[in-house]
Design a protein around this nucleic acid. Structure first.
Length: 424
RNA sequence: GGAGACGUCGCAUAGUCCGGUCGAGUGCACCACCCUGCUAAGGUGGAGAACCCUCACGGGUUCCGAGGGUUCAAAUCCCUCCGUCUCCGCCA
């Protein structure tokens, strides 16, 4: 949810942001009208209620014989209060409904426009070239005894898979590398619930645009999370955080579940787009003044991972129209996938500024001279430090003519292998 | 799954039976000032959140786990939900 103060003080900034995203600017005016209605309704309700409260005190202290008459008048007043209250709360709901559809204000510098309007910030690493015809990650994975899609489908359906043998070990090594780096950077490791209540799912904003992407357990009314971001964002819901000693930084390790409802037919081969995978997700709660720096910090950690894994990648500044509703800016890191001859998104990092925190009511008390200031929403940021999909780029990039795969140096101690070799 | 107890303003608690003077007392912690050479102790005062009105001073409304209901009036009575704890049963 956006800042309603900003909506009132500078609606043009909000309209501009909506236009950058290719979203409606008219909702801004609808929201302003709803705000006026709401405030008028609240004021008249509160005036009546104040009257009722004062009257109630008179009834309480009145001599017994006067009470019946007073109560009769109070009854009449109570009816009017009830009506005014219903009106005020309906007006408040309507305002929230409309404001809720306004997406986060995009940060300056974010390219306006749709998916293709992104800016490439940099390309890093040399594109791999092969003196032989490279195999794709699935062909490699099958030869290495690392990936079994067929039995995944037998057991769970399409887009499910088994990681087997060195495949399972490779994923764990990757996740452990990410976890190690996270701990070194001072993040608190977390293993999070992957089933969450509806309020949490709604609070993090995933029930809007992504609703049909999410698995729901009807019998228990719980949602399976598509990222530990959901649980981590919900972790401090409704709390007033102490940020005096710096940001609260977490690294959530979880299995992620996605229905991939709208992606029929795309990336059907291999483990690029699957219903279930693992992810190590960074999540920070920071003073909004530090949000941009925190975003850079996450990006740097992600780049270091990709670099150290020997992957060629580019960093793009995602266009406004391609941002989620909560994100004010998002960097995607896309690794080169040799057999596809293009960059594919491996990871991203989003700065949600105060948008997500406002909806989740996560606040802090800024330090101001002369004591504590009023509470205000924190900024939240998230970024992925490793996921199963990374195996695609790792396998393909480091393959050799004989179908073996050289293990990146940083993974060797964690994996216990220097080379993955095809099964006989 | 069955039976029961409980959920109050940072923490701990009082208040709930018998609805009104309880938005709420007390202790600890906290902040400011005073006092004592320092420390400890002591004194005085302050201090929750959200929203509305106001240039401001200030005023008002809401919040006692959440949501409904009864009532002129609910922390207090009723219902539903969530959570915690205890006992019994069952099971990885």
């Amino acid at each position: 949810m956006i800042d309603t103060q900003l909506l009132r003080d500078d609606p043009e900034q909000v309209r501009e942001s909506q236009r950058h995203r290719g979203e409606s600017a008219e909702v801004v005016d609808a929201a302003l009208r709803a705000d006026a209605v709401r405030r008028a309704a609240i004021t008249s309700f509160e005036t009546l209620r104040a009257e009722q409260n004062a009257f109630g005190r008179r009834v309480a202290t009145a001599p017994k014989e006067d009470k019946p008459a007073l109560v009769a008048r109070a009854q009449e007043l109570a009816g009017r209060v009830k009506a005014a209250q219903a009106e005020a709360s309906a007006a408040a709901d309507e305002f929230e409904r409309i404001v809720g559809t306004i997406e986060n204000i995009v940060l300056p510098g974010v390219p306006a426009g749709g998916e293709d309007a992104f800016t490439t910030l940099r390309e890093v690493g040399e594109l791999p070239s092969f003196p032989f015809e490279p195999l794709d990650h699935l062909a490699l994975g099958e030869r290495l005894g690392a990936i079994d899609m067929e039995r995944g489908a037998k057991v769970a359906g399409s887009r499910f898979y088994f990681l087997t043998g060195v495949g399972a070990r490779l994923e764990l090594a990757l996740m452990n590398l990410a976890l190690q780096r996270a701990v070194e950077a001072g993040l608190t490791p977390m293993i999070t619930p992957t089933l969450v209540r509806p309020e949490i799912m709604a609070g993090t904003g995933f029930l809007g645009q992504h609703a049909d992407e999410i698995y729901h357990l009807d019998g228990d009314d719980l949602y399976l999370t598509g990222t530990s971001e959901v649980a981590l964002a919900g972790y401090h819901q409704g709390e007033i955080l102490d940020l005096a000693r710096g940001p609260l930084r977490y690294a959530g390790w979880s299995t992620c579940y996605r229905r991939e409802a709208g992606s029929g037919g795309r990336d059907t081969r291999g483990i690029i787009r699957v219903h279930q995978f693992h992810k190590l997700e960074m999540f920070s709660f920071v003073d909004p003044a530090d949000a941009v720096a925190e975003h850079e910090r996450m990006l740097a950690m992600q780049e270091r991972m990709l670099n150290d894994l020997g992957l060629a990648y580019r960093v793009i500044d995602t266009a406004a129209g391609d941002l989620g509703s909560s994100a004010a800016r998002k960097f995607d890191l896309e690794a080169w996938v040799p057999t596809q001859g293009r960059y594919r998104e491996l990871t991203s990092t989003s700065n949600c500024t105060t948008y997500q925190a406002r909806r989740l009511r996560i606040r802090f008390r800024p330090e101001v001279e002369g004591g504590d200031g009023a509470t205000q929403p924190v900024a939240t940021l998230n970024g992925t430090l490793a996921t199963t999909r990374w195996l695609v780029a790792i396998l393909e990039t480091h393959q050799r003519a004989d179908g073996s795969v050289v293990v990146p140096e940083v993974l060797r101690p964690l994996l216990g292998l220097d080379l993955l070799e095809p099964l006989a």
